[in-house]
Nucleic acid binder design. Structure first.
Length: 935
DNA sequence: ACGCTCACG
DNA sequence: GACGTACGTGAGCGTA
């Protein structure tokens, strides 16, 4: 197998293996295997080694290579991103359990004694191109082991390709079959046709067929572009004239670079026999039993013992050490920290948790960091523990034996930013923000809370204590044991380090174990894509939004609050007057007694507590009968709500440093995929009433800026039209007509023109009712009509739109069968209550009907948000808020139109390319100095 | 700690 | 035939 080392030339045969393609193929072809002894993901490495072994075993004929190399991609950013920033922009993020396997695939290649090549800033394709050119120029033959169509331009004159799966050779004929042109014109065709996978734009509306036709007619791309006027088809002609520049850019993107610098010689790629001991040692270390045995037999060597826990007798979880079995280490000096960092680099992953002085990530200070790499072992690095109670007399001082926070952060920064090291957290957005305030953008990340959410939404919540108990059978140390509760509660900084260490280290270890538990389950339950595309990428996006905050004018709120206080006092006087006695207007109990016992109005008892209901609809009914007191109460309640929840509470949320309000979004809070906003909730700022809407005037743009709001129009109804496949509804949305008027017209047989607003209102209520899993009772209450009438409406509706009934029935049946429903994008929402009987069954049924619709809308805006930072990167604009179907931006005043164009585009195509909706998504936009104006 | 009420989509 | 329901949230307040 060894050739003389005279140099690479005639008679030599170079094999170039597309390593990255091998890895992805291996990853997707195999179930998510983990290494028995420690649970790290190893499936892609296993597949990679199998493929490599098969390759090596096959090379023994007369056409065996004299030289061989495996080429890998080094990083995602290459010179092509300089030419076109969007290049490969819509690639999904790497699966988190794949990235840590990358270093191992390099090791594997070396273990096979094959040259392993990667170059910073270049794609594997470019290195393959350069090597092919060089080898061909030297008179040798080249075989590229890959089926990547982007490499087909290299075929010809001694270079061919080999599809490693089909074992099929790809020569000039096969290339011509695929592209309609010879290999030398492949780039021209690709430049025209573009590539949605790599996000090469190409010419809109032109695919490979048309591109080949044009190139064959005009000879080459430049001739085509310079003589575009001669194209007969007017539309095609115009497209090529309009997009000439874009097409030229596309060509530069697809054209592989034969001049890629190489810091090694062809000679160095000479085929070497595998060294049995090195290869077998690696395979045994990976615990690949079958392959180790097979290789040992073939090489005539003795197979080393594969040491790991023997296969479990049942399918139970692998044997793991007990919690903390190998100790929780307190790290107090640089030497110890460096030891951990070295271990992390070796492992390729680390579970991490931060302890801070408070729960508000915008203000909390770092107190300590805990790390865990494997089950049974973790450490805690205290940095901010203090002694004394911090008051004037017991002045606080730093506890001795801690590293400085700055030194720890400086040491951890390379780890936290290392693309080859996965950082695993539980609710990692919290820790991400803490580090971001110290100039560290942590990446890549995994989040056990989000893994659980992707799997278990609808079944249970996803807090660490809950997950630890359910999946690890472990009860976490309650935080209360450290900081107490109520009045005597202390901050984490005041906790003694000896007590903090086991608590904090345990959190990191639990996180690590949860990650190991969930990683294989995500695949098995088919929610990996949801986790990778809809959950994990939200973390940095939301963290940035939350840290940006929105400017709130405290003075305006204060003025409003005073006005509200006056109005409340005035209303209270009137109310007491009408009631004939003084009482607490804010007490439903006292109010109920006044209304129903004392005044004897009609309205029954409700609820288990036996209290009268005094809710708005009860009071509205009474007011409609002409009673003044309930009407005044309603007024008072509105003002009271505005004052307490909005003007007063909001002021307390203005961050003193930034002068802005920083909400926190929970990614895993709602069952359906929606976000939830807390502290404060900025997703329920008043808008429906004139008075309430004025609160939004206090949400202002910073000077020189504007607030811009973009919202999806009728997104849930559009999704309903698509998923239930309702022709009339789809057509109406395509035609852009008033959907509620159309519904009314279909139901009641009246023309849209000059329609009675009442009729339209009823149709609108029915449309919404459908989304919620309509019932006659619910509709009758909403519309305040007799139940029989409401039921008749619903019957008519189902007659006119029979597909809706079919959709609802099918959704419920699916839920009963599977125990969950899925959105268009694969998000899984579990429906544990669906097979119950009794009153609860109705609720579960309606929730199951609603979830795929509400959830798909949530998925779509998530997709838009994830793409948004890149789309507005060059604009002076920031995304600040999300309100389910609305995104709010802050933009420099000169750039509002540009922002709207860019953001609208992202939002309108957000479902693609995964889902091509049968209806358009329409986005409305508004601009203003404040949120009231912009909405 | 829990229920009621009400703000939003 | 009766049961009680519109779907999804979070916050403030009163009450126990």
């Amino acid at each position: 197998m060894t050739s003389d080392s005279q140099g690479f030339g005639k008679g030599c045969h170079l094999h170039l293996i597309d390593g990255s393609a091998f890895i992805f193929r291996a990853y997707h072809a195999l179930p998510p295997l983990t290494r028995k002894s420690d649970g790290i993901p190893i499936g892609a490495v296993a597949g990679f080694c199998n493929m490599l072994w098969k390759y090596v075993s096959d090379q023994n004929g007369s056409d065996a290579p004299t030289h061989v190399a495996v080429i890998f991609d080094h990083s995602s950013k290459t010179f092509r991103n300089e030419i076109y920033p969007e290049y490969k922009a819509n690639r999904p993020e790497l699966p988190e359990d794949l990235r840590p396997q990358f270093p191992l695939t390099r090791e594997a290649t070396r273990a096979f004694n094959i040259a392993c090549i990667e170059t910073e800033g270049f794609e594997a394709d470019d290195i393959i191109a350069a090597l092919s050119c060089k080898a061909r120029d030297a008179g040798g033959a080249v075989t590229i082991i890959s089926s990547d169509k982007d490499l087909m331009q290299l075929v010809g004159q001694g270079v061919n390709m080999l599809d490693p799966i089909k074992g099929k050779e790809i020569g000039p004929d096969e290339v011509a079959e695929k592209f309609g042109v010879g290999p030398d014109r492949v780039v021209d065709v690709q430049a025209l046709a573009g590539d949605s996978v790599d996000n090469v734009p190409g010419a809109p509306g032109i695919g490979i067929k048309t591109a080949a036709l044009l190139i064959n007619e005009f000879g080459d791309l430049e001739s085509l572009l310079s003589r575009a006027e001669e194209i007969k088809q007017p539309k095609r002609r115009q497209t090529l004239i309009d997009h000439a520049e874009q097409i030229r850019i596309s060509k530069r993107l697809v054209q592989l670079d034969c001049d890629t610098p190489l810091d090694f010689t062809l000679e160095s790629l000479e085929v070497r026999d595998p060294q049995a001991d090195a290869l077998l040692e690696f395979l045994a270390q990976m615990e690949f039993r079958t392959l180790t045995a097979r290789v040992a037999e073939k090489l005539g060597a003795e197979a080393p013992a594969v040491v790991s826990a023997p296969p479990a007798e049942t399918a139970a979880a692998p044997e793991l050490p007990a919690m903390g079995a190998d100790g929780y280490e307190r790290v107090s000096d640089r030497e110890a920290l460096d030891r951990w960092i070295a271990e992390i680099a070796l492992a390729g992953h680390v579970a991490i948790d931060t302890e801070t002085t408070g729960l508000d990530e915008m203000q909390a200070e770092l107190v300590g960091v805990s790390l865990s790499i494997r089950a049974g072992r973790a450490c805690y690095i205290p940095v901010g523990h203090v002694e004394g109670d911090g008051d004037l007399f017991g002045a606080t001082g730093r506890v001795a034996g801690q590293m400085d926070a700055s030194e720890v952060l400086e040491a951890l920064k390379p780890v936290l930013e290392d693309p080859a090291i996965l950082k695993i957290g539980q609710n990692v957005k919290y820790d991400w923000k803490i580090f971001a305030r110290h100039g560290i953008r942590m990446t890549p990340i995994a989040d056990t809370m989000l893994m659980s959410y992707a799997l278990n939404a609808g079944t249970h919540n996803h807090g660490m204590d809950e997950l630890a108990e359910r999946y690890l059978g472990h009860k976490c140390i309650p935080i209360k044991e450290l900081i107490g509760s109520g009045k005597s509660q202390i901050g984490f900084a005041q906790v003694a380090i000896d007590k903090a260490t086991p608590y904090a280290a345990e959190d990191a270890e639990v996180t690590l174990r949860l990650w190991q538990h969930f990683a294989p389950v995500l695949h098995a339950e088919r929610v990996t894509t949801v986790y990778e595309t809809l959950e994990r990428p939200m973390v940095p996006v939301l963290a940035d939004m939350e840290m940006a905050g929105i400017r709130v004018d405290g003075e305006t709120l204060k003025r409003m609050s005073n006005a509200f206080a006056q109005k409340m006092a005035q209303l209270e006087d009137e109310i007491h007057e009408l009631a004939g006695e003084k009482f607490n207007v804010g007490s439903p109990k006292q109010l109920g007694e006044i209304l129903f016992d004392k005044m004897g109005l009609a309205g029954g008892k409700q609820g288990k507590t036996g209290a009268y209901s005094t809710s708005a609809d009860v009071l509205e009914d009474l007011a409609a009968e002409g009673h003044d007191l309930p009407a005044r109460i309603l007024d008072w309640r509105q003002v009271s709500k505005l004052k307490s929840t909005y003007t007063d509470a909001l002021q307390s949320h203005v961050n003193p440093e930034t002068g802005r309000v920083h909400t926190s979004y929970s990614i895993a809070g709602a069952q359906t995929g929606r976000l939830a906003s807390t502290d404060p909730n900025l997703q329920n700022i008043p808008v429906r009433s004139e008075e309430g809407r004025r609160i939004r005037e206090a949400f202002v743009a910073t000077p020189g800026h504007r607030l811009v709001s973009l919202d999806y129009s009728q997104i849930e109804l559009r999704i309903l039209a698509h998923v239930a496949d309702i022709p009339a509804l789809k057509q109406a949305f395509r035609d852009g007509i008033d959907i509620h008027a159309m519904t009314a017209s279909q139901m009641f047989g009246v023309p849209v023109e000059g329609m009675d607003p009442m009729i339209r209102r009823q149709a609108k209520a029915i449309n919404f009712g459908v989304i919620y899993g309509i019932s006659g009772y619910g509709l009758s209450r909403n519309l305040r009509i007799p139940r029989s009438e409401a039921q008749a409406f619903i019957n008519t509706y189902f007659e006119r739109f029979p597909e809706i009934r079919a959709y609802m029935d099918k959704t419920v049946a699916d839920a009963k069968e599977a125990g969950y429903v899925r959105t268009l994008f694969g998000r899984r929402i579990n429906t544990p209550g669906i097979n119950q009987s009794g009153p609860a069954a109705g609720g579960a049924r309606r929730a199951a009907i609603n979830a795929p619709i509400q959830g798909a809308a949530a998925d779509i805006i998530r997709r838009a948000m994830i793409r948004m930072p890149e789309a507005i990167r060059d604009l002076p604009a920031r995304m600040l808020l999300q309100v389910h179907d609305e995104l709010v931006f802050e933009v420099e005043e000169g750039a509002t139109e540009e922002l709207i164009a860019a953001a609208r585009q992202v939002m309108e195509v957000a479902a693609e390319p995964v889902v091509k909706l049968a209806v358009p998504l329409v986005v409305d936009a508004g601009i203003g100095m404040n949120w009231a104006e912009a909405h």
